[in-house]
């Protein structure tokens, strides 16, 4: 008993000795800018922001996908304005299946606006106007029926927003025609179950499909929203800060899910969280004041940014 209470040390020391402090996770402050080494093969870790701006931390990184990369969408010189205010300025960026594209940047830099233009959701803002072209599988999205486009390019929002109906009906809603109650429940069951399995939620809710969706936990609600977005088998999945309302554990579950999904759909994620971008993204676009400042592989944008503004943002000089 006594030996447990007392810290180890010479017996000559008095009884009232404070326990030694726990080891501090040291933040390495570097004096000189260092040359960034390419990530050592096999260890799975790369430095984040290790280019002399003060902060070095290690983020676990997943292996890149082995699936073939296919370009599904492309923005060509896209500009979006709200009234007089230009929110997105001449952005050209590809969206590929088989990888995750992360859009990062400070608040108000236009990344969410750019994301919402991919499924033309930006149009519901009355003052919004857009220039440039966005294509889906080579087809101009402005020429497509908007409901058709949004079935092929689905979206998950910042706050979990299941509809006030049962878990089953939330997903069935995405599968049914406009406002129709057909097809019947039995016919949809297989598709609903499939969407829940793909979103990694089936094991938790498979037995309680008739329960109200809003009784689920926040993380489960968000995965239900992902399942709902996946139900109609979209080609592109847009995620607008999907983890910002969630706890770290739910965040990790959803990040794992994103990495599993990237082979079947092209994933675009908007995030404030640079660690998250590095954890899940294969390519990163850094936006600032409406411009796409830098676009490239995640290791390059975080490890060896070409632009000064990227270096400053990634290093934490502003944000």
């Amino acid at each position: 008993m006594d030996s447990v209470m007392r810290p180890e040390g010479p017996s000559s020391e008095p009884d009232l000795v404070l326990a030694p402090p726990p080891p501090v996770r040291r933040i390495l402050v570097e004096e000189e800018p260092t040359v960034v080494q390419p990530p050592a093969p096999g260890n799975g870790y790369v430095p984040l922001g290790g280019h002399g701006n003060g902060l070095t931390t290690q983020v676990r990184r997943r292996e890149p996908s082995s699936a073939p990369k296919v370009e599904r969408m492309r923005c060509e010189g896209v500009s979006i304005a709200y009234g007089e205010k230009l929110a997105v300025n001449e952005v050209t960026i590809p969206v590929r299946q088989g990888e995750v594209l992360a859009l990062i940047g400070p608040s108000g830099c236009g990344k969410t606006t750019l994301l919402r233009s991919l499924n033309r959701l930006v149009e519901i803002t009355p003052t919004a106007t857009r220039g440039g072209t966005i294509s889906l599988d080579g087809e101009d999205i402005d020429r497509m029926e908007v409901t058709e486009l949004r079935r092929r390019v689905s979206m998950v929002f910042q706050q979990p927003n299941p509809f006030p109906m049962s878990i089953f009906d939330n997903i069935a809603y995405a599968l049914r025609e406009q406002g129709s109650r057909r097809p019947r429940k039995e016919a949809l069951h297989e598709h609903v179950a499939d969407a829940l399995v793909r979103a990694g939620l089936w094991d938790e809710v498979g037995a309680t499909l008739d329960h109200p969706a809003l009784r689920l936990s926040g993380g489960q609600q968000q995965r239900l929203c992902i399942a709902r977005a996946l139900a109609a088998k979209p080609e592109v999945l847009l995620l607008d800060e999907p983890c910002s309302a969630l706890d770290p554990r739910s965040t990790q579950v959803i990040e794992d899910l994103i990495l599993r999904l990237r082979d079947e759909v092209a994933v675009v994620i908007v995030t404030h969280n640079m660690q998250q971008a590095l954890r899940v993204a294969d390519h990163v676009g850094f936006m600032y004041l409406g411009e796409l400042v830098e676009y490239g592989p995640a290791e390059q944008v975080f490890g060896a940014p070409r632009e000064e503004r990227t270096r400053e943002y990634v290093g934490g000089a502003f944000g």
């Binding site: 509809f163 406009q178 977005a229």
Partner: peptide, 24 residues
């Protein structure tokens, strides 16, 4: 954002009102 979630699934405004907003 609940309305937007319905639009983002390719639903029209009328379907959103009938199936999501009025039940809520």
């Amino acid at each position: 954002h609940v309305r937007e979630a319905s639009y983002a699934l390719g639903k029209t405004k009328a379907a959103t009102i009938r199936r999501v907003l009025l039940p809520a």
